Computed example of a mutant assay.
Amino acid sequence: MDFYIKNMVCDRCKMVVRQTFEDLGLSPDSVELGEVKLSLEPEPAQVNKIAEKLQSYGFELLDDKKNQIVEKIKNAVRELVHQHPDSLKKITSSVFIAEKVGKDYKYLSGLFSESEGTTIEQFLIEQKIERVKELLAYDELNLSQIADQLYYSSVQHLSTQFKKVTGLTPSSFKENRDKKRKTIDSI
């Protein structure tokens, strides 16, 4: 049986979800971002406990097929930006997402827009800007290196997009001591 879970965005999330299932006496075959596979089907009471426990950690069981696909799209975008930014140079984001989700990109794009009220492209931009904020906060790379790492055509392109999304220039953001960043799952 497969469970689809909203708000799983990192390896720590996978550890928490795995532990949640194990605490309830269920041994997952695999735990990936947004998905848990079990070989045995749990009792309805166990499913309710899983949902309750996951919710206490900020996760949500998804039972609707469309919501499951939307969550897969989000996880693919997060993976592309935060774990495999080098893929941005090799293939288009639409090809990456379609391959990860296993569906036609045109269908995915329409479903995502209908469900989220924004486009996959805008979601990708927001994820890239959050990654830029993270890299600026680390203060290990200059803006040119960050633009190159996230496959922006130029520093100017990155700066323009950054200002459009945040209302600040990258240098203003860097000077701001608060460095207000959003959690990945809140985007």
Rank of each mutant, 00 (worst) to 15 (best):
E175H: 08
S171V: 14
V36T: 06
K180W: 08
Q127P: 01
L26D: 00
L158G: 04
I129V: 03
D86G: 15
S154K: 09
D139T: 09
E175N: 11
P42W: 05
A45T: 11
L111Q: 10
D178H: 11
E99C: 12
D104E: 09
I50R: 04
R131D: 02
E126D: 12
V17N: 06
A98Y: 02
L38D: 07
S109D: 14
P170N: 01
A98G: 06
I73P: 05
S109Q: 13
I73S: 03
R18N: 15
I97F: 03
E35D: 03
L135I: 03
P44W: 06
L143K: 05
T20F: 05
I5N: 13
E114R: 12
C13N: 04
I5C: 02
K133D: 02
P85F: 05
Y57S: 08
T169P: 00
N48E: 14
K182L: 09
K53Y: 05
V155L: 12
E79F: 13
A137V: 07
L111V: 00
K37N: 09
K106W: 07
T118I: 09
S87N: 15
D11G: 13
N142K: 13
F173V: 03
E130Q: 05
V17H: 07
D104K: 02
Y4T: 03
Q156W: 14
L61S: 06
K49F: 09
E99T: 14
D64C: 04
S186R: 08
E43L: 13
K163A: 01
Q127T: 00
R78E: 05
K6W: 03
A147V: 00
V9G: 15
V16T: 10
K164F: 01
I129T: 03
E175R: 09
K89R: 10
V47M: 11
S39K: 13
F112N: 01
M15Q: 12
K133Y: 05
G167E: 05
P170T: 02
D64S: 07
M1Q: 07
E52F: 12
K128H: 06
N176V: 02
E43Q: 13
G110K: 08
E43T: 12
T20H: 12
E126M: 14
L24I: 03
I187T: 04
E43V: 12
G167D: 12
Q46S: 12
P85K: 04
N7K: 06
L143I: 12
S159L: 05
S159H: 00
V165E: 07
L111Y: 04
V16K: 11
E60L: 08
D185K: 15
A147E: 07
